[in-house]
Design a protein around this nucleic acid. Structure first.
Lengths: 327, 327
DNA sequence: TTGAAAGCGCTAACAC
DNA sequence: GTGTTAGCGCTTTCAA
C-alpha cells in the first residue's frame, strides 16, 4: 500500500498551515492567488487526496449514494436496471460521489437496511428503484428527512409523498409503438400487459388506448394481461390474434418474445425496454434513455444536497422507438 | 434524519464507560458476562450502530470492497457480470462488507481510479473482473500490496503474478456441452469461438478439442473464430455446416444465437453463459455458478484481510449444462 | 474487568 | 490572508 499523504505533509512541504491547504481545496476564494497556486502544485506533486473518512467525520457528508441491486425477474427486464446502474456510477463519479450497493427482498427489509446504512456508512442519499403504490420506503425516508430520488414516479397521489423523482414516460413509449403500427397499415392493434393496479403497467396500457382513440379507433377489448413472462405473452397473443388483431403492442420484451413465438408472418409485434434480447432477435422495442435518467437522478440529488430546503422536483424523460424487423 | 446514537450515549445509558461498550462489540471475551449482556441490551434498545467513518479512522479498515461496473459488450454476455455483482453484494453484506462501484475504460484508467479510491475511500480490497494476458492492474496492485481477488484466472504464468483468484472452468463447460452432443449421436461436432490469444477463449476451445480426442475423434478443422457477436456466429456456422458439421459448440450465447439463425432442423447448438437470451429462445447453454463464485471471492478476500501474510489461494468452480430444446 | 487518555485526518470557528 | 484550537466517534494503549 502506498504510504499515505496527509494534509499535514502538504502543509509542511508547502510551508503553510494545514488550514491553508484545506482552504485551498474547500474555499479557494479565501486564499491568496500565489499561495493557492503553490499549494495546488505541492498537492499535485505529492499526489495528495483528502481522506474521505476524516472529512466525513468533520462535515457529516460521506459523498456516498446508496442503491439497491437485485437479480431482476427473468433476467430479461432485469438488464434495464443494470444499464441504469452503470450510468449512475458514471454520473455520480463526475459529481464527486460514489455508489454504494445493497440488497433487499422487500420494502420492509429495505427499510431495515436504510437504518443500518444511515447509522454506519451515512450515505448522503438513496436512489430508489421500482417504486409502487403505497411504497413504504418513500414515506419512511420522507419522515426522517433522508435525501433521496426515485427512479420511477410516486404512484400515489397523497401530498405527503412529494419527493424528487425521475421517470421515463411509458405511455409515450407505447403510444409511439402504437402509432408506428398504425402507420404501417394495421387497424386492429392489440395490447399485452400486466394486471391492472401496477402504476407502470397501467401507464403503458394508457398510451396504447389513448393513441387508438386519437386515430378514431376503439380498443374493442383487444387487450390481455398476465404476469410478466414468455408464457403470458404466448397465450395472450394467441387470444388476441384469434380475436382479429394483426399487430401487438407489448408492455415488456418478455411478453413480446412470447407473442412472437405464436405470431405468424405479417403479424407485427413491439416490445418494451429494448433489452439485449430485443436486439438479438430483431424485436422492435421502446428504448428508455437510461443514461440520461441516471444523470437526471444525480442532478436532482446534488441540487437537493446543496440547498437547505430542497424543492421536490421531477423529470419525465421521453423514450424512443428502436425499430427492427418485427414491426 | 434520525438523531444519531453514539457510543457515549450507550455508555451513559448502560452506566459503563465508552471503552466497555467498545469492548463488548470488538473484544467480547474481555467483558464480564453480566456486563456484556446488559450493554448489548442497551445497544439493541437504542438501536446503536458503530459509525463506520470513526471506526475507519482508528482502525484503517473501511469494510468497503470496490469493483468496476461496465456496460458489457452487446449486453448479452454483459448480464453475466450483473448476476455476479448481485451475489457479491449479498455475500459481502453477510461478511460485514459493502460494495463500492466505479467505472473505467481500460487498465490504465482503472489504475488511476485505484489511486484515487485508495487515497480517499480506502477500500479494504478490490475485486477484479475480466482479467487478461499482461494485466497491468494485477501487477500494480501486487506491487503496492493492495488486497484483491480476481474473478478470472491470471492468464500469465509469471510467478510474480500470483494472487488469489476465483474462476469457472470454461474447458469443463465446453467439454460437457461436447459430451452432450456426442451422446445425442452427433459425430461431427464443430466449435465456434474467438480468435486465439484470449485466455478465456482458448480455454473454452480446449475443452471441446480434448473431449473429441477422448472419444477417438479429431477436430478435423471443424472450428471457426471471430469477434464475439451474432454476425460471427452466423458466418462461422454456415461454414462449419458446409464442412459437414451437424452440431456446434459455441463459446458464447451471442455466437450460438447467430449459429441458430442459420442452423436447420436437426442441427444442435450449445451456448455459453446461460444468459437470459438462452432461456428465452430455448438455447442449451453452459451455466456458470455466479453466486458461488461471488461467495468464493468474498471468502478468499476475508481470509486474506484477516491474516497478515495472505497465501495466494484460488478456486476453480465447475459449470453445469442447462439443457433446452436447441440440443 | 473496567476506566482514562490519546489521537486517527480533517475542517468550522475564531484569533492574529 | 493565514495560523491556532477544538472536536467529529471511535479504538488502542495503559493505568486502576
Amino acid at each position: 500500500m502506498a504510504d499515505k499523504v496527509t494534509i499535514t505533509d502538504v502543509a509542511r512541504a508547502a510551508g503553510v498551515s494545514r488550514q491553508t491547504v484545506s482552504n485551498t481545496l474547500n474555499s479557494p476564494e479565501v486564499v491568496r492567488d500565489e499561495t493557492r497556486r503553490h499549494v495546488l502544485e505541492v498537492i499535485a506533486r505529492l499526489g495528495y487526496r483528502a481522506n474521505q473518512a476524516a472529512r466525513q467525520m468533520r462535515t457529516g457528508r460521506s459523498r456516498l449514494i446508496a442503491i439497491r441491486i437485485d437479480p431482476g425477474g427473468d433476467g430479461i427486464n432485469g438488464s434495464v436496471l443494470d444499464r441504469f446502474l452503470h450510468g449512475l456510477t458514471e454520473s455520480a463519479a463526475r459529481a464527486g460521489y460514489r455508489i454504494l450497493l445493497y440488497t433487499a427482498h422487500d420494502d420492509r427489509s429495505e427499510i431495515a437496511t436504510f437504518e443500518d446504512l444511515i447509522a454506519s456508512y451515512e450515505p448522503d442519499a438513496f436512489v430508489l428503484t421500482a417504486t409502487h403504490h403505497d411504497d413504504l420506503r418513500t414515506s419512511w425516508l420522507l419522515e426522517r428527512r433522508v435525501p433521496f430520488v426515485a427512479f420511477g414516479r410516486p404512484w400515489s397521489d397523497l401530498p405527503r409523498t412529494q419527493h424528487p423523482w425521475v421517470d421515463v414516460d411509458g405511455a409515450a413509449g407505447t403510444a409511439a409503438a402504437t402509432r408506428h403500427l398504425l402507420a404501417a397499415g394495421h387497424r386492429r392493434v392489440g395490447f399485452v400487459g400486466w394486471p391492472p393496479g401496477s402504476g407502470v403497467g397501467d401507464d403503458r396500457r394508457a398510451g396504447w388506448e389513448r393513441t387508438l382513440a386519437e386515430h378514431g379507433l376503439r380498443p374493442d377489448d383487444l387487450h390481455r394481461a398476465g404476469e410478466d413472462g414468455i408464457a403470458t405473452g404466448e397465450s395472450a397473443a394467441r387470444d388476441l390474434l384469434g380475436a382479429g388483431a394483426t399487430a401487438l403492442v407489448c408492455a415488456s420484451d418478455s411478453l413480446a418474445l412470447g407473442a412472437l413465438n405464436v405470431a405468424g408472418p405479417g403479424v407485427a409485434v413491439t416490445g418494451f425496454d429494448d433489452t439485449p434480447v430485443a436486439g438479438a432477435i430483431g424485436l422492435t422495442s421502446v428504448h428508455q434513455p437510461l443514461g440520461e435518467a441516471a444523470a437526471a437522478c444525480v442532478a436532482l440529488l446534488t441540487r437537493a444536497l446543496d440547498s437547505a430546503e430542497p424543492p421536490a422536483t421531477h423529470m419525465l424523460l421521453q423514450p424512443s422507438l428502436t425499430i427492427r424487423r418485427s414491426a
